[in-house]
């Protein structure tokens, strides 16, 4: 049995390792806007997860004794026409916005990823047909497509997710396809095929990991767009239905009616939407800079 001859002293290496805090700090220095975006995203996620801990009010129960109260110590953002605490509804609204935004963005980007990679990999007639369908789908402005889907399926949280997901798929498929086309030409894909690997294995193990950068970039831009789109649909009465706390819904109806007497009803939910989308956009931009130097703007 060989006895260990020399124990490598790693303590010196440990000293060379950059502590996490310094690494984080460097990232903040390099991407200050991205860090600000990440900060907003984290705050929003925490609010969504711990909504019931942060606030003791019920977001859906009416309290007609305290209708339309202006912001004060008990209700920092005032109350709406049913006496519900607006701050509470804004915090719970983060839950609705995030769950719908993340699900729709993930489904849309992943659907596009599969379609885009398959289209580039198989080529030929499959690619041609897929791309013509994508052409047609991309001729619909985002919100028109979403509204047309809602017209068929009817409103409701689940249908909103479907309505937002469908227009995302072609956009992501187009972007992923162009990256995948370049990767398809790299010899290792031919090598994998020569080894007799199945199509599924080549696509999943060899192509998909290499188009992760455009996929993640699309995913992060989609989240902000999805939150905005959900707010628009809910505002139009085609999205999440009352009494679910959703930012867009909070701006519907009551907000305009009481605009003059109770402006806080419409101010705060709109601020929440703006900040959330702002945060995700900054985060997405920073992600683009880090992941893809070629796609860097400005």
């Amino acid at each position: 049995m060989a006895t260990p001859q020399a124990v490598i002293d790693t303590s010196e290496l440990d000293q060379l390792r950059i502590p996490l805090r310094t690494q984080l700090w460097r990232l903040v220095r390099k991407q200050p806007l991205g860090a600000a975006g990440a900060f907003i995203v984290i705050i929003m996620s925490l609010a969504a997860i711990f909504a019931n801990v942060i606030t003791s009010y019920n977001p859906v129960a009416n309290d007609l004794a305290s209708m339309l109260q202006s912001p004060e110590a008990n209700h920092w953002m005032g109350t709406d026409e049913f006496g519900r605490d607006i701050l509470t509804r804004v915090i719970y609204g983060a839950r609705t916005a995030l769950s719908i935004g993340l699900t729709a963005a993930f489904l849309g980007a992943t659907g596009g990823l599969v379609l885009g990679v398959a289209s580039a990999y198989f080529g030929g007639i499959f690619d041609l047909i897929t791309q013509r369908i994508v052409d047609v789908l991309m001729a619909f402005p985002l919100i028109i497509m979403a509204l047309a889907v809602v017209a068929t399926l009817g409103p409701g949280a689940q249908n909103v997710i479907i309505a937002i997901t469908i227009p995302f798929i072609p956009t992501c498929a187009r972007v992923v396809r162009s990256s995948a086309l370049a990767i398809r030409e790299i010899p290792y894909v031919d090598a994998a095929r020569a080894l007799g690997f199945s199509h599924a294995r080549i696509i999943l193990r060899h192509m998909v990991p290499n188009v992760m950068a455009p996929y993640l970039i699309m995913l992060s831009t989609f989240v902000g767009q999805a939150i905005l789109l959900e707010a628009v649909l809910s505002y139009l009465g085609m999205g999440v239905q009352d009494p679910t706390p959703a930012w867009g819904l909070m701006l519907k109806g009551g907000a305009e009616e009481f605009l003059e007497s109770a402006p806080w009803v419409s101010i705060f939910p709109g601020l929440a939407i703006s900040f959330a989308v702002f945060g995700f956009n900054l985060f997405g931009d920073a992600m683009r800079d880090v992941l893809d130097p070629k796609m860097r703007r400005d």
Binding site: E256, L259, F278
Partner: peptide
């Protein structure tokens, strides 16, 4: 311009109406 992309235009519309109301008042 980043704010312009984040602010929903329908909310900006509501805020413009609110501003007009306050100013004209």
């Amino acid at each position: 311009s980043i704010a312009g992309i984040a602010i929903p235009s329908f909310w900006l519309g509501i805020m413009i109406i609110l501003g007009l109301l306050i100013v004209t008042q």
